[in-house]
């Protein structure tokens, strides 16, 4: 018995079977685990290493290499503000401070209730919406004091 539910195990197995080679599903499976547990823990790594027949050190390498995967839990909503050049020119630094103030946490932290975490992002491909605001990998348009407060209100 693993620490995943039977249904979750099925989903992970689905990623293992989806591509022509099993290993090609690993990153997607890790993304899936990140979504469920808001981080990838030791147990998860062990489980996926076995499922994908891949050495554990390389699984851990992936988790630490890709910013989308985290070792410590993020919030249910991962809020990000881009600080790439176009966004920086449009005042992303001030918007980051605004977000930190609104959430009461610093970048890289999670609110105590586990609802939000805030990250500064490298370019998210939305320079036309600078400074770009993103929640759980979905672009939310430009960050402004108003859009930030509306967003935080809106999310259940």
């Amino acid at each position: 018995m693993s620490h995943f539910s039977a249904e979750q195990e099925q989903t992970l197995m689905g990623w293992a079977r989806r591509y022509p080679y099993r290993i090609m599903g690993l990153l997607e499976a890790l993304r899936q685990v990140q979504e469920w547990r808001r981080c990838v823990g030791d147990q998860d790594e062990e489980y996926l290493a076995k499922l994908f027949d891949y050495p554990r050190n390389h699984v851990h390498e992936l988790v630490t290499f890709f910013p989308g995967l985290t070792l410590r839990p993020t919030g249910r909503y991962r809020v990000g503000i881009c600080r790439g050049l176009s966004c920086a020119l449009a005042g992303s630094a001030a918007m980051c401070r605004c977000m930190e103030k609104s959430l009461g946490i610093k970048a890289g932290e999670t609110t105590p209730d586990g609802k939000f975490s805030f990250e500064t992002m490298e370019c998210i491909g939305a320079c036309d919406h600078a400074p770009a605001l993103i929640v759980n990998d979905k672009l939310q348009g430009a960050a402004s004091e108003q859009s930030i407060s509306e967003l935080l209100e809106r999310l259940p």
Binding site: M24, L26, L27, L62, F66
Partner: peptide, 27 residues
């Protein structure tokens, strides 16, 4: 045609690093 997602590395956009990423390795 199948889809696959990355996890936040600019390097994955470089062709050979993209292939590495698809193979379950670091970019």
């Amino acid at each position: 045609i199948d889809l696959m997602r990355g996890a936040g590395a600019y390097m994955s956009g470089l062709d050979t690093a993209l292939l590495e990423t698809m193979e379950g390795k670091k970019a």
